[in-house]
């Protein structure tokens, strides 16, 4: 009610009103996906299943260091999925079914829509990390300290952002049903080429050399650091991921502004 007295009728909107719109958009975005398991379950369970099969079952006799390495790798593989699919596919669908058009016509504050999707992806990434940690500790007997677990959770929840931006770019370029296919063509090869399935050191030299091109390779190094597998600093890799996020986001935003 108090918002009404602050806002002058029919023109500007109070800061509180704008904040309320952002909050309402984020809440709706989270609610709608939490209520549609058909979308959220595959996005979170697909990488989890990969970890169970290839990280745990296939590596039953792995030593402690290897087990920890695998957890870091599959964590990165896991958080890419909500970023790329959660963001990219839903954007591509909503560009096709008219929801985005309606939102653009309505006075939704610019960015509220994207922020809502971003929060949802961060939440899903957090769920993936918690699932993987539980599996790792419970079945693969990986030793993880509370600090390491928290560091991995933070890595996942923030590490999803460059993939949100990449997903957004794909969603801005491809409309509707074509998006999942395009995203898989990016997701699976990029995971392989970043050493998430097979350690980089076991891949051909050429592939090792070009690995720094992939954002997932940088996130992999940060995840390894979070679990105490390596100790060489993460500043540069964080900066590279930030730059990727900014570039993908700006390209996507430009394309969306022009085309809708």
């Amino acid at each position: 009610m108090s918002a009404i007295t602050i806002a002058s009728p029919a023109s500007g909107m109070s800061l509180r009103g704008v904040f309320g719109a952002y909050a309402a958009e984020a809440r709706s975005e989270c609610l709608r996906y939490l209520r549609s398991p058909g979308f959220l379950l595959p996005v979170t369970l697909f990488p989890t299943m990969f970890y169970v099969l290839f990280g745990i079952v296939m590596n039953r006799n792995a030593d402690a260091a290897t087990a920890r390495y695998l957890l870091a790798s599959y964590s990165v593989f896991g958080v890419m999925s909500p970023g790329l699919f959660g963001f990219g596919v839903s954007l591509a669908m909503e560009r096709e079914n008219g929801l985005l058009t309606l939102k653009r016509a309505l006075p939704m504050p610019p960015g509220a829509y994207l922020l809502g999707k971003m929060l949802m992806a961060m939440l899903a990434a957090g769920v993936v990390i918690v699932l993987l940690l539980a599996l790792a500790v419970g079945f693969a007997h990986v030793q993880v300290s509370a600090m390491q677990a928290l560091a991995l959770l933070a890595t996942g929840m923030f590490g999803v952002l460059p993939f949100c931006a990449l997903g957004m770019l794909v969603g801005a370029l491809v409309k509707g049903q074509g998006a999942p296919g395009v995203i898989n063509i990016i997701y699976l090869p990029m995971s392989f080429l970043s050493g998430l399935w097979i350690p980089l050191s076991m891949l051909p030299t050429v592939l090792q050399r070009i690995a720094p091109v992939w954002p997932s390779a940088h996130l992999h190094l940060i995840a390894l650091q979070a679990l105490g597998v390596r100790h060489t600093g993460i500043g540069l890799h964080g900066a590279v991921l930030l730059a990727y996020t900014a570039v993908f986001f700006l390209l996507a935003a430009r394309r969306l502004r022009r085309l809708g």
């Binding site: 009404i4 029919a10 719109a21 958009e25 709706s28 996906y33 209520r35 008219g98 309505l106």
Partner: peptide, 26 residues
């Protein structure tokens, strides 16, 4: 009100209304 807009089906009508209301000053 556009010709075709697929609103999020899992949201309740009251939630859709509250969301849209939040975009407006009064």
């Amino acid at each position: 009100m556009l010709q075709s807009a697929a609103l999020p089906g899992t949201l309740r009508v009251s939630e859709l209304l509250r969301l849209t209301m939040s975009y407006y000053p009064t």
